[in-house]
Design a binder for these strands. Sequence first.
DNA 1: TCCAAACCCTTGGATGTCCTAGTATATTGC
DNA 2: GCAATATACTAGGACATCCAAGGGTTTGGA
Lengths: 168, 168
Amino acid sequence: MAVPLPRDPIADAQRNWEEHGWADVAAPMAAITAVMRTQQILLARIEGALKPFGLTFARYELLALLSFARSGALPMNKASALLQVHPTSVTNAVDRLEGSGLVARSPHPTDGRTTLIELTAEGRIVAKRATAVLNTEVFGQSGFDAADVDQLIRILGTFRRNAGDFTD
Amino acid sequence: MAVPLPRDPIADAQRNWEEHGWADVAAPMAAITAVMRTQQILLARIEGALKPFGLTFARYELLALLSFARSGALPMNKASALLQVHPTSVTNAVDRLEGSGLVARSPHPTDGRTTLIELTAEGRIVAKRATAVLNTEVFGQSGFDAADVDQLIRILGTFRRNAGDFTD
DNA sequence: TCCAAACCCTTGGATGTCCTAGTATATTGC
DNA sequence: GCAATATACTAGGACATCCAAGGGTTTGGA
């Protein structure tokens, strides 16, 4: 960002909460606000790494998901469920990826309502290269130490389960 | 969301990463993906709580920031820096809040380039009520236990500092 | 003193997300 | 077998974010 602030704005907000009689929820407020800001920072890094490929994070996630599908193709509703985004967001991503020639739509063999999406040869190559760059430039330099990574996976995993993401 | 998945999709992704020779970055990848999903869940809860007030999270954050400003007003560039969003996002939020009569723009007394934004009487009331609802419906029921809240604040605080958010 | 560089805000464009509604196809139940 | 209900995808609209560019205001060095 431009210039670092002299003080942590979220810590300031937490202090404000405590001084206004909301001390009981000041900490969760700070934690949640920190999650929002962290997501913003990470998303910017990811999009920066993907820009050379003409990909956004949303499109990359779909490509990556398809690259791991054994059959090589997935129904759109399945992709929507696994990526946990609204069906219209998948439609949007597929429209653009199809326009770039990275994925193709095809009718489902037995269910006329369903549309399958699958990687093209080029899509598979781009997915592999983009993943390599993300791994080295973003995931490999996250700035979280190993112990904290484990903590995040545990804490956020519990949160997501409680939020109804999965029953596992 | 609709129906919980039988398994954690992020844990599956982590396994896929490990099986494809990227074991060294599989955990950070999972942690980062979890942050993205958690933000999505939290944002949905927040927006749901704010909907009755005709507010979005972006607009609420600006209202809350102004309500804590001693002088009662802030220059737009200051708000942009403290909220850590692009100046155009602040312009957008102010446009809408001004349209709702919750904030007002006024020229800076000594610097002709600067625009000050301040809460209107109604804006101050709405900010207070919206905060009360957020505190009870979202922050007070985050689903994170106290120890995990502290961990998140510590881990994400370190991350944000390293990312250049503040020097504190 | 005066003009170039720096700074502030806004406009316009591209993307992503969600919601609501509409069309087409399947499945269910009488 | 046929009508009612459910499911799948898409179109259109509201919002938010960022980037690039433009116009007005200040500041600072020649």
